[in-house]
């Protein structure tokens, strides 16, 4: 057998993701006031969370901020049982798709303070905030059952 030549090629690059003016307002309120904001499209009658500058359906520019509840409904979930370098926590842990009261769209976040066996769709959940906010999505540590 001829020796095959295969070369390890690491790739490392540093980036900074702009969250923009809308994102900055959202993360600032979350960080400083533990307040969760959404954005309403008056034409499509939808409240987006996370908030966005433009409605993807009608492309209207949005500026109608809405304060959302820190409570919502679990739409669906999964429990992670395997370990990989990309996993943010040690297994087992649960991801949920959560729709906050007052919003029409969902976000994906961790479920905490919960036995994976007892999670069920439709369960009511509440955000648990990080003591000192840093201005990113993990200022909500996880959602716990009500």
């Amino acid at each position: 057998m001829e020796e095959k030549m295969v070369f390890d090629e690491p790739y490392v690059a540093h980036y900074q993701y702009s969250v923009g003016a809308v994102g900055t307002k959202f993360f600032t309120e979350l960080r400083d006031n533990k307040k969760i904001l959404g954005m309403r499209c008056p034409a499509c009658h939808l409240v987006y969370f996370p908030p966005r500058a433009t409605c993807h359906r009608c492309l209207a520019k949005l500026d109608e901020w809405v304060e959302l509840s820190d409570e919502g409904t679990l739409i669906t979930y999964t429990v992670v049982h395997y370990s990989e370098p990309v996993q943010p926590q040690e297994p087992p842990f649960a991801y949920g798709l959560i729709r906050l009261d007052g919003a029409d769209t969902c976000i994906c976040h961790f479920l905490g303070e919960v036995d994976p066996e007892s999670i069920n769709i439709g369960m009511r959940v509440k955000a648990v905030f990080r003591e000192k906010g840093e201005g990113n999505m993990l200022d909500i540590r996880y959602f716990k059952p009500l």
Partner: peptide, 27 residues
């Protein structure tokens, strides 16, 4: 510069196969 930027680093490991022609060159 009042806007929030979230730093992130991409770290990946690829394996590049030289193929038979370049393999001979490499060897």
């Amino acid at each position: 510069d009042q806007y929030i930027k979230i730093p992130h680093t991409v770290r990946l490991l690829y394996r590049y196969a030289a193929g038979p022609y370049m393999a001979r060159f490499c060897k």
